[in-house]
Amino acid sequence: MDNNLYTNLHAEGLISDESFTKTMLREQEPVLFSLHWEIRTLLYIGVLLLTGGLGLLIYENIDTIGHQFVLGLIALISAGCFVYCFRTKLPFNITRVGAPNSFFDYILLLGSISLVTFVGYLQYQYNVFGTHYGMATLIPMLALFFIAYYFDHLGILSLAIANLAVWMGVTVTPKELLLHSDFNSQTIVFTYLALGLILVFAGWASQCFNFKRHFKFSYQHYGIHVTYIALLAGYFLFYDSFAAFGWMIGIAILSVVMYNDAFKNSSFYFLLLVALYSYIAISCLVVRVLATAGDIGAIYLMFLYFIGSGIGMIFLLINLNKKLKTP
């Protein structure tokens, strides 16, 4: 663009001769146009289309002669993908292992999804697992976790976490959480709480035992959302009883633990989540207190509370960010 920039900086003595030559050499190289993200997106869409198409193909031909052919096709695709992955993968290590090429990631994804579809289809059509419905979701889940660890694939780890949730009878992805969850049942709230704690623990364990440390983010991401939402849901479920405050104490403990952890790993994302969820929890308590007063003055106070606390939150976030940057 403007090479004058570096000439000027050089003249002002801000960059050394060596850096200046290196930069100028780099600027003279022809700029390569990278198709990296286009290719990744297209691969992703290709996998999406293919697995979607196969899923529909089974669904529509489920009672016809063609279904054995489809089943065979899926098995073949899955096996083919895994053969490819086994042959090209880099050796296993407990730390991060990169993919040999970008194609690898998507072939592995295709193989895993077709494997899961295959198992699901077997159960539906041939009742391989009989009435042990838990088994029908447990097997794919274990397989996915194994694949995720063995080939070091974050996307499949997320799939495995989603499957863990399915196996426990709930969902974890944010969209599903908001759309379909029924938080009015005690069992569901407790299941979510257990799931969330398992995930948070798994995140902690990944780091502590230094086993696939970079998986921590995925575990913690789902774990922290699910735990906070379960705790808040529990608070509202037991709103009228004294137990409600137990749930609030749970939120407080979680916040403290996560706050320290976020600082230790200097991750502002988790710090932000802690701040926002804690803010929601505190606001729930304040609104509750004000609602008991129940006159117009309380409503004014509530508005003032939100304005004041919001401004407080701004300063808090800005300061936390500063504190995180300068340890």
């Binding site: 990744r40 992703y44 869409i45 999406l48 289309l49 697995t51 979607g52 198409g53 899923g55 529909l56 089974i58 669904y59 529509e60 489920i62 994804l109 999804i113 899961v116 579809t117 198992v119 699901g120 289809y121 159960q123 539906y124 059509q125 979701t137 794919p140 889940m141 974050l154 996307g155 499949i156 780890l157 997320s158 799939l159 976490i161 989603a162 499957n163 399915v166 969902t171 974890v172 992805t173 944010p174 969209k175 599903e176 995925s218 991401h221």
Partner: peptide, 25 residues
Amino acid sequence: ESLIVAETFSHTPTAPANDGAEFGG
């Protein structure tokens, strides 16, 4: 990327029993 994968494919395990229209993409 990993989050998108989970979001779009999280229905797959129960594919045949679920309604197939979920896929489409």
